[in-house]
Design a protein around this nucleic acid. Sequence first.
RNA 1: GCUGAAGUGGUGGAAUUGGUAGACACGUUGGACUUAAAAUCCAAUGGCCAUUAUGGCCGUGCGGGUUCAAGUCCCGCCUUCAGUACCA
Length: 955
Amino acid sequence: MKYNFNEIEAKWQKYWAENQTFKANNDSDKPKYYVLDMFPYPSGAGLHVGHPLGYIASDIYARYKRHQGFNVLHPQGYDSFGLPAEQYAIQTGQHPAITTETNIATYRRQLDQIGFSFDWSREVRTSDPKYYKWTQWIFIQLFNSWYNNDTDKAASISSLVSVFETEGNAKVNAACDDAVKVFTSEDWKGYTSEQQQAILLQYRLTYLAETEVNWCPKLGTVLANDEIVNGVSERGGYPVVRKKMTQWSMRISAYAERLLQGLETIDWTDSLKESQRNWIGKSVGASVVFKVIETEVTPSLDVNDTHLEANRNSHDIEVFTTRPDTIFGVSFMTLAPEHDLVSKITTQAQKAEVDAYIQATAKRSERERMADVKTISGVFTGAYVEHPFTKAPIPIWIGDYVLASYGTGAVMAVPCGDQRDYDFAKYFNIEIPNIFDGADISEMAFTDKNNTKIANSDFINGMNYKKATQRVIYELEQLGQGKGKTNYRLRDAVFSRQRYWGEPFPVYYKNGMPQMIADEHLPIQLPEVEKYLPTETGEPPLGNAKTWAWDTIANAVVENIKIDMETVFPLELNTMPGWAGSSQYFNRYMDAQNDDAICSKEAMNYWEQVDLYIGGSEHATGHLLYARFWQKFMFDKGMVNHDEFAKKLINQGMILGTSAIVYRVAGTNQYVSKGLKENYEVEALRVDVNMVNASDEIDIEALKNWLPQFNDAEFILEDGKYFVGREVEKMSKRWFNVVNPDNICKEYGADALRLYEMFLGPLEQYKPWNTSGITGVHGFLKKLWKLYYDDNGLKVTDAQPTKDNLKTLHKTIKKVQEDIENFSFNTSVSTFMIAVNEFNTQKCTSRDVLQPLLVLISPYAPHISEELWHALGNEASISTAVFPVFEASYLVESSKEYPISFNGKMRFKMELPLDMTKDEIEKAVLANEKTQQQLQGREPKKVIVVPGKIVNIVG
RNA sequence: GCUGAAGUGGUGGAAUUGGUAGACACGUUGGACUUAAAAUCCAAUGGCCAUUAUGGCCGUGCGGGUUCAAGUCCCGCCUUCAGUACCA
């Protein structure tokens, strides 16, 4: 019988689907295990061989856990809202739902042919109204919540309202907008409903606010910080500018500290945790208030602009510093050009110069400002602040090295202790007082805070950094001009997108204030639009919808013409960002068909949280941070029972493409083989890798037919062959280096694909795909097959296994089990190859070892294992089989080949019984002829014997 | 700059955590089978030297160190990749 993999794989895939072999049960007595993949965005290009890498790894683990007796949840779905489908819709008019549906069908076919053990009965699609109903629902819960810093958790907004009604907001310690004003209970009761709603918006966990956003004109939408790479959009690489817009935001900053602390409790990779720590960017220091000296200040200050901070006036400048100990080294103050106070404090004399500077910096895009960090620029405002302790006047400057978006947008400049302040001071000839004992600051600032004592600093002279910091904070508190403060870089996340293909908000507007639609009317479904572009007035695409208004009597979406602002109101035109749908899908899988809740309490109590999550590290500061935020919120609200959603996370690396390059002689249609290209002036062109064989030789006829430009090309050959150059880069259509798993499955089989992807190298690593190597694992599968079948049929017998048979089997069990548990799937493949070779050499036919061998291999190569498993007479699927138990006794040997070393260098080997004592071993080795030969009559100085391992003779 | 990861044959990568470096596979070379190709099988394959079998020397990015023994541990460099960056 021949190994007909195509037939076998189709047969068992059908069997698994029909028998729902991998359906997970929500009420089982077995222990549970939840293995999750990052669900894919179904793009039009389909899967390439790089995509399934992580899925194969998680599938091996899931199948292994099933063999270990766990009830395994291994679901899959689609993150099906997103830009490409919408871009395609704009170009073709095709509804994104249709494209998405087609793409999903392709993905499903491709995934199925690889033989994954997914429980498809729990499939979710983020663009499915049945699913996004719950995304909308969570949005409403966030809207109806605020963050109480005293209890350190989210609480319902109604609890906040009752505090306002009884005592105002003076004692409320909330994560809220900085601009919140103090009011009493009487004030509160006197406010109109709109005023009250406006105040509550400043507390809600999702709120509407005018924010400076990253606007991408080309995409016509705002982008989150993590969607921008090097100043251009991650998708498409278009320029991004800053722009003020009214947007929904998520108050993720409220959770900054808990997101940081939570990292300690989860088993994620260090690099990923570090990325998140950097992104959260905690820094501890102090906030200091500097009072503007009033001489020239324009009198038209807004006296009503009171801040929660006591003692603060509108013409005070608050700064954040991590070095309060250097406060006596302050010689100027720098404000960001965008700082609110700039226009208020600038003197008449400096006004023209300041305005010119602000205009110049505003013109420069963020990108230019980032690229150009060396140029020092700034301008004096003419105003001064008073030093809190010395009362000396300190000049206020503006400089674009200060960022409006970090801290307070103002810094106290200490040129002797900070290099940027130093450079600025040198450039503008500002004084640089030295406050470090013995430090040399003639060339550069002294930034080493741990190796100096403070000098020239009044009450902190002679103190170290730590003591001085404490003292300065204490003194500032006494003055009411500062306090210890922790600052986070993490910004609130903008949650609005001016796109069509995303979750609509369950929000309508009444008197300009947002109103939530009640839970029972969800989902609010995406309306039909005539075109997917922004409207002529610049509104988002939903502005094109004719039926997009909320009738508060009928509780239904109705036609826009019915809007009367009495009972029918306009609906929100923005949609939610890509990360909305992916921030809670892992909980939905636990109970995917539930219409009454995201997940029932019972299901939640059973599955608890994801035990193993496998996905790419590119989501470190996006999805993985937002999902943790939502999970913590849901935990606060008692919807889930863990405040981290994934216990363990592994980042799979990427499989890269190996592009093929031909060299065209400049200005001709001649192509020169790689080895001869040095003799010509050439330009490199990428060609389809599928025309190139394993030795880098290209099929010239195929190339000629590939594109018209090659039809009458001439080739300069080496040894009658044309060799291409190679380049390792991301697999992408534009480099013609995409390898399609469909072709691999057809030619070598899914099992070969699975084994080979694992064999390529460690899971976490980036590695190039090279199709020629697959013959190795393909050959292994054929050998495996031949171990069970020869020309006469099945050759497995009931013969007693030999000692050697058992030794090979148990060696393999031990190694494979260790490998799977350590996620070193690459080395298991080698282990299987060695085992099969050994069984071949042993001429093993014994069912007692060949049957357990199949179970070991089945997580990796499920189809062939299932086929042979049934051929051996088993009725049920191999996935119900128990993983063989390792018995150490089979590996015990009575003797071993000892390496005998001289001065650490191995010289020869010697067979010695393992039960010998140290002394006996030493004696035996010294008595050996070869040892004597090596010693040449000398006495050894020392003999080191490590029983079972090595003998080393020092002489 | 900072943070994280990593440097082992022509290539992908192993090495039981300090104990025979290069498993396994690709590629290459030679051979068998075949009219031929494919497939399959066998042999060789880190470098250098020697050879009648046996052998010898050098080798895990570089330079030191610890140790009977270092790819592995310590110190100091170099390089590559990834993330992040005027963060006060």
